[in-house]
Computed example of a mutant assay.
Amino acid sequence: MAAALVLVALVLAACGSGGTASQAKIPLKLAENNWTGSSINVNVAKILLEEQLGYKVELVTIDENLQWAALGKGDISASLEVWPSGHAANVKQYIDDQKVVENLGPLGVVGKISWYVPTYVVQDHPELATIDGFKKPEDIALFKTAESGDKGQFLAGDPSWVQYDEDIIKNNSLDLKVVRAGSEQAVLAALDSAYSRKQPILFYFWTPHSIHAKYDLTAVKLPEYTDGCYEKAASGGVSCDYPKDVLFKIAWGDLKNKAPDAYQFLKNMQYTDKDQIGMIAAVELDKKTAEQAARDWVSKNESVWKAWIPAK
């Protein structure tokens, strides 16, 4: 009888006052924004959180701007690719002031948004390598479309993306009109169509992306980025280039307490531009799903992701 009582005492001590051997893991929700890099990141995280740490993970498709409020309320657990140049106000509101969202540190990938033209355009018209070339009526005429009318067309993507192109155009007195394709896929389709016919096209895009492995593109040189230029963003005063973006991760402010091992895993998660570009290319060029591309990367890179797993 005494031995039995000792055993019961040991079990209760191990279980704690709640009577369970370990606290149940909460379900996690990761924000999936509408570009391939974001899909890659959350699929890599989902695989490892589920298979290495035992979490149930849901991917939630959500706009990059709307995710901040959802993270602040705990409706979403984390978002893994924030481009800082477009979210200074969100960082101030949710991270610095309200402290309901936490910066989890860099993803390891450095991004850059630019204006692009196919390199064959610059070979025929060298002046179009810089913004000054777009101040000449004869060069603007090359980019006129049915949608842009008597102006040259600047092709943008999803309206929800952070973009300052209308401000840059206005503040540099360019005779261009922003036409929104509606999505990343629509921009790529327009580029593919123009490229196949060697026609001029001017468009918003970024690196890292598989587009640079498929097409020979030139980034148009815009006025040099300065912090002061972007201090005027809220009033429409941006007139310069986009900055380089050290992409970072964010999480619900209480994730550290509710799921400490998942929090530490996401904080540790980092890989390189090359890692991400390889997975993006697998999706966009090899037609794999984001989950398949992520699974392939995980299977080949255990030495990388093992360092993300928190010590027990």
Rank of each mutant, 00 (worst) to 15 (best):
P106N: 04
Y204L: 06
E50R: 04
W161K: 04
G111V: 03
E291M: 13
L202Q: 04
C15R: 09
V121Q: 05
F203E: 00
P126I: 09
G149C: 15
G133H: 02
L12A: 15
E50C: 01
K249R: 14
V117K: 00
P126F: 08
I250A: 06
D175W: 02
N33L: 13
V178W: 03
V44S: 00
Q199M: 15
I309H: 05
Y204K: 10
Q264K: 15
K306P: 03
L155C: 05
S160F: 12
K136G: 11
H209A: 06
D254Y: 06
V42G: 06
W308T: 08
K287L: 06
D165A: 10
A89P: 08
P208Q: 04
A9N: 08
G54S: 13
N268L: 11
K92N: 12
F265L: 07
W68Y: 08
N172R: 05
L266W: 13
L48P: 03
W35E: 05
L53V: 10
V246G: 14
W68M: 00
G86R: 05
K221W: 04
A219I: 05
A194T: 02
A13D: 12
E166S: 13
Y195V: 09
E302N: 14
S22M: 07
I40M: 00
I309C: 11
W206V: 07
